[in-house]
């Protein structure tokens, strides 16, 4: 779910944009910025829920050390969205608690 964003990019920064899909919603972002930055500017107030307490979490450090910004990107879970530049058509998903391996590969294992 997207809400009022905490950050915005002034129009004066105008440049080429890309569109990514975040939990089935299209999000437009300037090319070249990180997925984490794109999601914050789009109004993603949380990126995942924590593994133990299932509390909402969002980026803290933006430089690859805190691991709070983990999301699934193009089917690969637990990627550090602050280190991945946006690409047109990227599919990004929130993570609920621990990573879930694909059903297609583990069948009814869970």
């Amino acid at each position: 779910m997207l809400t009022e964003p905490l950050f915005s990019i002034p129009a004066s920064e105008g440049r080429e944009t890309v569109t990514i899909i975040f939990d089935d919603q299209a999000v437009t972002a300037p090319a070249g910025i990180s997925v984490a930055a794109a999601l914050l500017v789009a109004g993603a107030s949380d990126f995942r829920t924590s593994i133990v307490g299932h509390e909402p979490r969002a980026p803290y450090c933006m430089m690859g050390v805190c691991f709070e910004c983990l999301v699934e990107i193009d089917g690969v879970p637990a990627r550090q969205s602050c280190l991945v530049p946006v690409k047109d058509g990227m599919i990004v998903r929130r993570q609920q608690g621990a990573v879930s391996l694909p059903d297609s590969e583990i069948g009814d294992g869970r």
Binding site: E4, P30, L40, M62
Partner: peptide, 11 residues
């Protein structure tokens, strides 16, 4: 970092 890398400012 958000400012440097994306020009993003608090709303």
């Amino acid at each position: 970092i958000l400012l440097k890398s994306a020009g993003a400012l608090p709303r």
